[in-house]
């Protein structure tokens, strides 16, 4: 058992992968809670897919992935705004049109004969190929995201609850929602190096959705979500090391297992608590003695 745990640590690349996936789990787990709470999972996934041509372009030109991804996200955002305005369709439709087109374009680029080998890592990720420089970038950007989340925690929570204007001094609900989308974009951008374009949404949404089923307070939800994300990431890496399966696939399998487990636990719990009527009447009684 100890060997099973210690063996992967003998290699620098697995240690780097473990650190990277833990950092990503922490940040994605926290950001993902807001994604789930605000119901913007679809936008988050779209951001990941929309930047694909940018990633492929960067790989073709030999630029850092972060740069290509950032350019891709900005381009996707501008196109979504433009298509939305030109067609007058709902935001959903504009996003779908732009993102599927961009993703298709990215795939065409990736399949072109000039494309260097290893480009499929952009789709499925390559946690074992993470460099020290990428680790540092993840740590710095992740820390910045967490600081913003912590500073804005109460405002995010209030806007998600009900976003009457004027209820929050100096910040409009629209501004807060935009800020949240920017945080999601940055998180996706950082996560894409290790997890790839297709799987990055899984670590953003999966643990948060699982934690949502099991928590009734935002703080515990965030902690649980980050915990699930880190644990699934680490477990997935071990699985991939020992069972010799693709790391990205193993991590996603663990995320899915965690979500299913959370569903079962939540089911079992409501089964127990639903039996006595816990709502309304008794609580109302207690309050009436006070008034």
């Amino acid at each position: 058992m100890i060997d099973w745990l210690a063996d992967p640590l003998a290699h620098g690349f697995t240690v780097r992968a473990l650190i990277e996936i833990s950092l990503l789990g922490l940040v994605s787990g926290a950001v993902g809670c807001w994604v789930v709470l605000f119901g913007i999972s679809y936008s988050a996934e779209s951001l990941a897919h929309g930047m694909f041509p940018g990633l492929v372009g960067a790989a073709l030109l030999g630029l850092p992935l972060l740069v290509g991804g950032a350019a891709g996200i900005i381009l996707a955002g501008l196109l979504i705004g433009l298509v939305g305005r030109l067609s007058g369709d709902s935001a959903d439709t504009a996003i779908a049109v732009v993102v599927t087109s961009l993703f298709g374009l990215g795939v065409l680029l990736a399949l072109s004969p000039e494309s260097p080998p290893g480009i499929q890592a952009l789709l499925f990720g390559d946690p074992l190929g993470v460099t020290e420089g990428q680790l540092i970038a993840t740590a710095l950007i992740g820390a910045a995201v967490l600081v913003v989340l912590r500073t804005g925690h109460d405002r995010f929570l209030a806007v998600g609850f009900d976003d009457a204007p004027g209820r929050i001094r100096g910040l409009s609900p629209a501004l807060i929602q935009t800020l949240l989308l920017v945080l999601v974009a940055v998180t996706v951008l950082v996560g894409v190096q290790a997890l790839g374009n297709l799987l990055v949404a899984a670590i953003l949404v999966g643990p948060a959705a699982a934690a949502r089923l099991l928590s009734s307070r935002m703080k515990s939800m965030i902690l649980l979500s980050a915990g699930i994300a880190i644990f699934s990431g680490v477990a997935g890496l071990y699985l991939s090391f020992h069972a010799r399966v693709a790391a990205g696939a193993a991590i996603v399998a663990c995320l899915l297992a965690a979500y299913l487990l959370a569903t079962l636990i939540a089911r079992a719990r409501t089964g127990i608590t639903r039996m006595p009527p816990i709502r309304k009447e008794p609580a109302d009684e207690r309050a009436s003695q006070l008034v």
Binding site: L37, T151, H153, D154, R155, L157, A158, G160, F161, D162, G166, R167, I168, R169, G170, L171, R212, S215, S216, R217, M218, S220, M221
Partner: peptide, 28 residues
């Protein structure tokens, strides 16, 4: 119009009122 599955306590909601007064960088 409020969300019943929202992960907050009664006290959390009552404390949200303070955001109308606090400058944006200050947490309650």
């Amino acid at each position: 119009r409020s969300r019943l599955d929202y992960p907050v306590s009664a006290l959390d909601v009552a404390a949200m009122g303070a955001l109308a007064r606090l400058p944006w960088w200050k947490r309650p």
